[in-house]
């Protein structure tokens, strides 16, 4: 029952997007990747309804890719696009002047409100201390590369130019930092 409702909504999303001219591409995305995309979005502690909204927005953005026919294996792009949608949504949900902005070591996060699921909110609070500890333990190089990419939105090649190192060097630092931080966030 819920299944068909979901399908209707997703089909409507495809229709909505098709005005942009890339309807075939989006339809293929939907047919081949919809379930995978929903699984992926849900892994960010997102509930079903919200995951559906996010997938719609991701299809919408994907439909604006200039040359879709050249993208033969779009799953990585689709996931990355969905992650950007999530990030944008997350940003809108963090109130300005929230208590996250405070001084040094201890964060008092009790007042941070989010419309996103309580579990994720809680997880974020709990992970915060760990993230900070993890960042401190990273080598300065890996940390700097990671910070520029994650918070200054710099591309790998921009970072490479900035520090005078190779793009593959940047990737190595990134992989190290991401593994380290993911492991730190994961342990409870």
């Amino acid at each position: 029952m819920t299944q068909s409702l979901e399908k209707q909504r997703a089909e409507r999303a495809v229709e909505l997007v098709s005005g942009d001219g890339n309807s075939e591409f989006v339809e293929t995305l939907y047919t081949d990747y919809h379930e995978k995309l929903l699984n992926y979005i849900s892994s960010h502690s997102i509930d079903k309804d919200e995951a559906m909204d996010i997938s719609q927005e991701a299809y919408m953005r994907m439909s604006r890719i200039p040359k879709p026919s050249e993208v033969k294996y779009p799953q990585a792009y689709l996931f990355r696009t969905a992650l950007n949608v999530l990030r944008d949504k997350y940003r809108r949900n963090i109130p300005e002047n929230s208590s996250v902005k405070n001084n040094d070591e201890d964060y008092d996060l009790t007042e941070v409100e989010s419309t996103i699921t309580p579990l994720r909110d809680l997880e974020a609070k709990r992970s915060l201390k760990k993230v900070q500890a993890a960042l401190k333990r990273l080598s300065p190089n890996a940390r700097n590369v990671f910070i520029l990419h994650r918070f200054e939105n710099m591309t790998y090649s921009q970072i490479a130019t900035h520090y005078g190192i190779t793009v593959s060097g940047v990737s190595k630092h990134m992989a190290k930092a991401i593994a380290h931080i993911a492991a730190a966030v994961e342990t409870r």
Partner: peptide, 30 residues
């Protein structure tokens, strides 16, 4: 699939700390 989702979720969860003073400082450092 799960492991990738977890890395991605960790990446996303950093959004909550982006405005903290600690992150602001290490951004300047970086």
């Amino acid at each position: 699939e799960i492991a990738y989702g977890k890395v991605s979720a960790a990446w996303l969860s950093l959004e909550t700390v982006s405005e903290s003073s600690y992150i602001q400082n290490i951004r300047k450092e970086a």
